[in-house]
Computed example of a mutant assay.
Amino acid sequence: MMKCIILDDYQNVALRSADWASLHDRVDVQVLTTHIDDEAALVAALASADIVVVMRERTPFPAGLFAALPCLRLLVTSGMRNASIDLEAARAHGVTVCGTASSLMPPVEMTWALILGLARHIVPENRAMQQGGPWQRSLGRDLAGHRLGLLGVGRIGGAVARVGQAFGMRVSGWSPHFTPERAASAGVEFVASKELLLAESDIVSIHLVLGDATRRLVGASDLALMKRDALLINTSRAAIVDEAALIEVLESGRIGGAGLDVFEHEPLPPQHPYRTLSNVLATPHLGYVTRDNYDTYFRQAVEDIHAWLDGCSVRIL
């Protein structure tokens, strides 16, 4: 019987999110709910696994890990894009890598949760109420009539734009390959440069794919262009923004605040400044973490395993 290990099931919901029992006579399924950061410990945990199921990019699979796992034959990831998997190394070691569908709406909704949470000071006001503190400590900021600037106006960015427009915001966009024609089709204002978008926007939200062209795309000189009360939202990938530069402008109060759901190192180290800065609303990469999404991930992971065992086509990355 083959062995399957499901990694990083933080909420311990994988087994009840799909019909894993349908595999019981062919595959022994085990679940790990605690993240393993040490590679040697990870190799030991996965040494006998023929199949591994990973949740997004929580556990990277570089070339060295594939080399250390000779039993591994199938790697299933949630979603159809996972930059933390070395696909070339997987092919070289004869490992099939496949994925699942993923809804674009959960990260869109998470983006707006961060925007609204920051704009209306939801967390500190709630904390003050729970602790018996002063009534109405802060002054919220308006969205209607103000500018939302999107770095990236693809499927997710376009959906974020539509919500902004529903709030009565002026929405503009830029990306390395954005054109006036694409802007018109998305119903947003075309901005000719990243610098202009950062300088003019009251709220900047990032919705770009991480790659060579976008890594550290927003650096110290870019952050210096932002309005002093502007908000920066990142639910995409942490490495698009220079972390050290962002921490510096947040600590100095050079921008109004940041809403962050993605980090260079996850889980975020206990002493990281993002955990304590009063102008940061940080969440532990919850953008895709919803009941419907998980049901899709694990149901289709089971389907992928069945198809692979039967020699049928799978959703290859």
Rank of each mutant, 00 (worst) to 15 (best):
Q11P: 01
D19H: 08
W20I: 06
V27S: 07
V27Y: 14
D28S: 13
D28H: 11
D28A: 09
D28N: 09
D28Q: 13
V29W: 10
Q30P: 03
I36V: 13
V43Y: 14
A45G: 07
D50H: 15
I51T: 10
R56I: 09
L65R: 11
C71R: 14
L75N: 08
V76F: 07
N82D: 08
S84F: 05
I85H: 10
A89K: 03
R91H: 14
G94I: 08
M105Q: 10
E109A: 10
E125R: 01
S138E: 14
G149Q: 09
L150K: 00
V160F: 10
G164L: 13
G173H: 12
F178H: 14
T179M: 05
T179W: 11
P180G: 05
E181V: 12
E181N: 02
G187V: 09
A199W: 02
E200Y: 01
D202S: 08
G211S: 15
V218Y: 07
A224L: 02
D229L: 04
A230T: 12
L232T: 04
N234V: 13
N234K: 09
A245I: 08
A245G: 06
A245P: 12
E251T: 15
A258K: 08
D261Y: 11
V262S: 12
H265D: 14
E266R: 12
Q271S: 13
Y274I: 10
A282F: 01
G287K: 09
V289G: 00
D295C: 11
T296R: 12
Y297M: 04
R299I: 00
V314W: 04
I316H: 06
